[in-house]
Amino acid sequence: MASENPTASEYIQHHLQNLTFGQHPDGSWGIAHGAKEAADMGFWAIHLDTMGFSIALGILFLWLFRKAAKKVSADTPSGLQNFVELMVEFVDGSVKETFHGKNKVIAPLALTIFVWVFLMNTMDLVPVDFLPTLAGLLGIPYFKVVPTTDLNATLGMSLSVFILIVYYSIKVKGVSGFVGELTLQPFGKWMIPFNLLLEGVGLLAKPVSLALRLFGNLYAGELIFILIAILPWGLQWALSVPWAIFHILVIVLQAFIFMMLTIVYLSMAHEDH
């Protein structure tokens, strides 16, 4: 905790601060205390809480699904296998609906995105003070538990998707095809600079919008939870409960949107004009 009796704005800022590990401007390595120090660390710093939670949740997802996949059988499924099959079938259906080519990567990619993002979003439903207070007792000054409220996490995923978009565009259409797609439409070869500008913005908007949409939604949701947490404790549940219930919808929806847009972008990358 920053201080014993934080003001509202201190409390909010404290909740929005990641546990950043990096090099201080004076050359020593360590954890940043406060937003200013974290910003001074520049690019070569890492958010331990974001990484920790996202990796832990990713491992949870893979462990759970691998457990089911190991003893999966074509007979009557039960328990965990039912759930895993439901997810796989749902994702597979979404992929087949949108993407008609042959690609072994897209479906598992979509499954990973959906479940992983969903799990990361779900951390939002943990009451905002539980884990940070626990961490504070253990001497950890900052603890932001929802990885998807960190722009680094969402942008990291969306940039990976962007790399795949470029990779498959070039693989399917060739370099010339991809460049042609960026420069020769919509206005033909006499407007190449303008076309490039238009299509380039369109291309770059994909990862940016993908990242910002998820980040924005979850950040805002988290912020509202934090604001609710400032209220007198007797009033909190009256707002916190409806918002949490509404948020159940949001976290699934955002995971689904991220997955669906990834599928759409990749299927667009596979399309030859």
Partner: peptide
């Protein structure tokens, strides 16, 4: 923005690879 971005991308890639290799095909 900082190194978390790259760390996140790497872990994402590893998760996708694992899912593609060991989870998706049997199911």
């Amino acid at each position: 923005l900082n190194l978390t971005l790259i760390g996140q991308a790497i872990s994402f890639a590893i998760f996708v690879w694992f899912c593609m290799k060991y989870v998706w095909p049997p199911v």
